[in-house]
Simulated scan of single mutants.
Amino acid sequence: MSDNNDLAVEIWMEMAQKQPKLEDMGKYIKKIVEWDPTLNEYDAVRICRFRQIYYDDLEKFLNIVYYYRHSRRHERSANDGMLLRLAEIASRIEIAEKTIRSEQKQERIAYFRILVETGIRHTQLMDLWEENLKGNQIELLDKKIGGNTVYVDLDGRLPEISDETKNMLVADEQGYYFHDTVYYYRMMIYAAMPEEPDIHIHDIRYFAQCRKAVYLNYKDLQRGKYVVHYKRSNPKR
């Protein structure tokens, strides 16, 4: 069994470039099984699905590959149906981001990327301004819940955006980042989404929250340690 990640990186890069559909992943599944005979086809399929779920984070994908190669099968608890749905949404998000990027409007790209990275409700991103940013973390009140409740991830931390997204944010004189209407941004996202299968804007929030839930199950993977940090009910859509 090979211990290097060369093949995993190769698969990541090729799938990112070609964006194959689930039914076209056979050659990648075969490569993974040949690379590591301790993995069966079922394991390889899940690894390929995780490539789609973590399409923007190679390090997390490599952690998942490590997890499947070094943990016992009964410890692998990710729900297969949820993975399939997340992979489906991820592929649509990937295409939508490329479409939005093609317009070369930095503010619009940043708006979309924050939705994907944080799971904050799209109607509340209009409230985002300089004082809400704590480094790369966003401290924003969840108005739907009410009171002084702020958005937090499943581990209790504030939602965090990538350096790339943060560098796209340019505040106006009042310190606000987004200036179009909620309706405009919503229509921008729908126009960028592929028609088949249809994905609702709230599926982006579902994707962001469930992707974090899946990854939090696999914390401390570098040490081969399996730790569950939370109990999660069925996500609402």
Rank of each mutant, 00 (worst) to 15 (best):
Y111H: 06
Y111R: 09
F112Q: 01
V116K: 05
V116L: 12
V116R: 05
T118Q: 06
G119M: 09
I120E: 09
I120A: 02
R121N: 10
H122F: 13
L128E: 00
L128Y: 02
E130R: 15
E130A: 11
E131D: 04
E131C: 01
N132D: 03
N132C: 09
N132S: 09
L133F: 05
G135E: 07
N136I: 02
N136K: 04
Q137T: 08
Q137C: 07
I138F: 02
E139C: 01
D142Q: 12
D142M: 13
D142P: 05
K143S: 00
K144P: 02
I145V: 10
G146T: 14
G146L: 08
G147C: 13
G147H: 08
N148A: 14
N148T: 14
Y151V: 03
Y151H: 03
Y151P: 06
V152G: 00
V152N: 00
L154V: 12
G156Y: 07
G156K: 11
R157N: 14
R157K: 14
R157P: 01
I161Y: 04
S162G: 12
E164Q: 05
K166E: 01
K166R: 13
N167W: 12
N167F: 13
L169K: 05
V170F: 03
A171H: 07
A171W: 01
A171Y: 04
E173I: 14
Q174E: 05
G175V: 11
G175I: 11
Y176W: 10
Y176P: 11
Y177N: 02
Y177T: 07
Y177E: 11
F178V: 02
H179A: 08
D180R: 14
V182Q: 09
V182P: 05
V182E: 12
Y183G: 07
Y185H: 11
Y185W: 11
Y185R: 04
Y185A: 04
Y190K: 07
Y190E: 07
Y190L: 09
A192V: 03
A192T: 08
M193H: 08
P194G: 00
P194N: 01
E195G: 07
E196I: 13
P197E: 13
P197A: 10
D198C: 00
D198I: 00
I201V: 10
I201F: 00
D203Y: 06
I204R: 03
I204M: 15
I204E: 04
Y206Q: 11
Y206L: 12
Y206E: 13
Y206R: 04
F207P: 07
F207C: 05
A208Q: 08
A208C: 14
Q209Y: 13
C210W: 02
C210I: 09
R211L: 09
R211V: 12
A213E: 08
V214Q: 01
Y215H: 06
Y215I: 13
Y215A: 15
N217R: 11
N217Q: 07
Y218H: 00
K219Q: 10
K219I: 11
K219V: 12
D220C: 00
D220F: 10
L221Y: 10
Q222I: 07
R223A: 15
G224Q: 07
Y226L: 05
Y226V: 04
V228S: 05
